[in-house]
Simulated assay, not measured.
Amino acid sequence: MKKYVFIFLFLTVNLVSYGQTESPMKDFDANYAHTVYFWLQNPESHEDCAAFETSLKKFMDHSAYAKTKYIGTPPKASRDVVDGSFTYALIVTFESAEAQQKYQDEAPHKLFIEESSHLWTKVIVYDSTGI
């Protein structure tokens, strides 16, 4: 009997856990992922960080094409293979490469670059399509 109770609890926990992790990812579109890393000139400056975050969030709020919109900062590196040298990361997904190109050309994107490009020294972009 104890064995069946254990199996029931194990299955219940796994199903509940699966449901919790699946929900936030339902907006993720694996067709096209656009990952951008920014290195700010003055990453210790609270004013620069606030200006950058405000501009980036405004851009994400007004983008007509971006589906998943994730903005992050590097955690403390726990392994040698983790590059935590960037200041901000942006991960955006699109339904297609064409939608990503429209995102590049839309007014909110151009305004973000105009408002914030003076704040960064380096930007690296990694685009990928799902397999």
Rank of each mutant, 00 (worst) to 15 (best):
F86Q: 09
F10V: 09
V5G: 04
S55V: 01
Q20C: 09
Q100L: 00
A99G: 09
Q104V: 11
E114D: 08
A30S: 07
I7K: 05
G84H: 12
S78Q: 11
Q20S: 05
A33I: 13
F86L: 06
Y18P: 00
I71P: 01
S78E: 11
L40H: 11
E44S: 13
D29H: 10
K58H: 15
P74T: 02
V5N: 01
S63G: 12
Q20K: 11
Q100N: 07
E22L: 15
P108S: 01
G130C: 00
P43S: 09
Y32Q: 06
P24E: 10
S78W: 02
K3F: 12
L40F: 03
S17K: 03
W39T: 05
H118V: 09
H46E: 13
Q41D: 07
I7A: 14
M25S: 10
P24K: 14
G72W: 14
A33D: 00
K122C: 00
I124T: 06
E53A: 13
Y103V: 06
S96L: 01
A50F: 06
N31Y: 12
I124L: 08
C49Y: 03
V16F: 13
K2L: 14
A66R: 09
D127A: 04
P74G: 08
S85N: 05
Q101H: 09
T73M: 11
G84L: 01
H34C: 07
Y32C: 05
L56R: 10
L11C: 14
Q100K: 07
V36A: 10
Y18M: 08
H118W: 13
A51Y: 06
D61P: 12
A89D: 04
A30T: 03
L11F: 14
S85T: 14
G19D: 10
P108I: 07
H46V: 10
Q101F: 07
G72S: 15
V16H: 01
I113Q: 04
P74Y: 11
V92M: 10
I71A: 05
H46T: 08
K69I: 10
M1Y: 02
I124N: 05
D80H: 01
G130K: 04
V16G: 03
D61E: 15
F52N: 11
L15Y: 15
A97K: 11
K58Y: 14
Y70F: 13
A50N: 13
G130Q: 03
M60P: 08
K76G: 10
K58L: 11
H109M: 12
S17R: 05
F86W: 09
K67G: 07
T12A: 15
V82Y: 03
L90I: 10
K26E: 12
L15W: 15
Y18H: 05
E95V: 06
V123C: 03
D105P: 01
N31F: 09
T121L: 10
T121P: 00
Q101D: 13
F8Y: 07
H46K: 14
S116I: 00
N42M: 04
E114Y: 06
K102S: 08
T121E: 05
M25W: 09
K2H: 09
K58Q: 14
F112A: 06
H34E: 08
F59D: 02
G84D: 15
L40E: 15
W39P: 05
